[in-house]
Design a protein around this nucleic acid. Structure first.
Lengths: 202, 202
DNA sequence: TACAAAATATGACAAATATCATATCGATAA
DNA sequence: TTATCGATATGATATTTGTCATATTTTGTA
């Protein structure tokens, strides 16, 4: 049943996959790529909720609460998504209680994560926030101390609640202090321990 | 089945109803009173997630994600809770798909609310934050322009991410500007329109 | 009632962060 | 290819917020 309703979609970098306020028609499983979930405020500024990776149900937080998206989704790189019609999913909830329980677990886990991340960022100062983000990419996204940032400095600021200027300034400072190496979007963490320490304290 | 497993509990003001990290044993429905949900950070400072009112499932955000509480719950006033053993709830999810769907809707709604609130507060400055909180109490909790604040100034700060001093200072300023009247914990909103405007812009 | 602890209050100052200006670099499109 | 726009970069300055000190008031409890 689900197999028949399945549809593969491909999005290019920068493509908006769904927009805040639009009706939700399907359940989206991220197969390949990287996306950002974000809200746009009345002044047109974005705030990023989270960055999602393959294996994530990227619109799960919106699906059951309302018929409209609570946030927008944009691809940060070439992204493949598996879509299943929402009615099919709702029928599945009705017929398969194991599936329901797994969804409940997953939704709780996701919302916990978003809340926890923003609480942690909230209690840090600029250096701590940037360190936290660099470590997030290293530990959770790329599993490497060298990587190419998938976002602009402005987007980093939108995720960790800072201005673009301060984000850039802090990265420059880390480079001067030889905590990281930086060439455009390519980052290499030179002093992991120190970065961890900054991420904890400041 | 649920009726047999039901248990009524009463908590006094200030009593901790459940603590972050403790195992979750039951599903809690708030029948009467007012509670706060909060996380304590490594420095011992609390951050309040939300204030909950009768009708709320106060530990729903933790129940399905893990076996341990992700936040603590404390009664802000005399509070009555209806507890149902967690195993009974899980069996109900297995047997009743309508119930599962309602839980999914409710969890999504709650997490949306927590995230949305913190995003809104995050993009405001001190005056806007205090205004937002005063209006939250007036519009959502007490449905009146005059009320007795159920929390200390420190707790207000813990909810809207400000220091206690700045919270007190801002309230004093609102009183001097005759936007609110204030006598201890009793607040009366004198200029609702102006408060709404401050809450939107700043 | 009286005492201690917490909450409220306010000023002076320090620290953190945002804003504004300006420059260079790089990617993209006509 | 070149023009344009967005991204990166950095300094100077203004604004916001936090910290520390110190009183006063209120509250809970012995």
């Amino acid at each position: 049943m689900v197999n028949e309703a399945r549809k593969e979609l491909v999005f290019r970098r920068g493509e908006v996959m769904s927009r805040e306020g639009e009706p939700i028609k399907s359940f989206m499983y991220l197969r390949e790529g990287l996306v950002k979930l974000y809200k746009t405020n009345i002044h047109g500024k974005d705030q990023i909720l989270s960055i999602n990776i393959p294996g994530d149900f990227i619109n799960l937080l919106s699906i059951f609460s309302t018929s409209a998206y609570k946030y927008s989704i944009t691809a940060l790189e070439e992204t493949k998504v598996c879509e299943v019609n929402l009615d099919v999913i709702k029928k599945l909830v009705n017929s398969n209680s194991k599936f329901s329980l797994r969804l409940l677990n997953r939704i709780s886990y996701i919302s916990d994560e978003v809340i926890q991340n923003h609480f942690e960022i909230n209690q840090k100062q600029v250096k701590g926030r940037v360190a936290y983000f660099l470590l997030f990419l290293a530990d959770h996204i790329y599993k490497s101390h060298t990587y190419r940032m998938p976002v602009t400095r402005r987007e980093v600021g939108e995720l960790i609640s800072m201005t673009t200027e301060n984000t850039i300034r802090t990265l420059s400072e880390f480079r001067k202090d030889e905590i990281i190496g930086m060439d455009g979007k390519t980052i290499s963490i030179l002093d992991y321990e120190r970065l961890v320490n900054i991420g904890r304290t400041g």
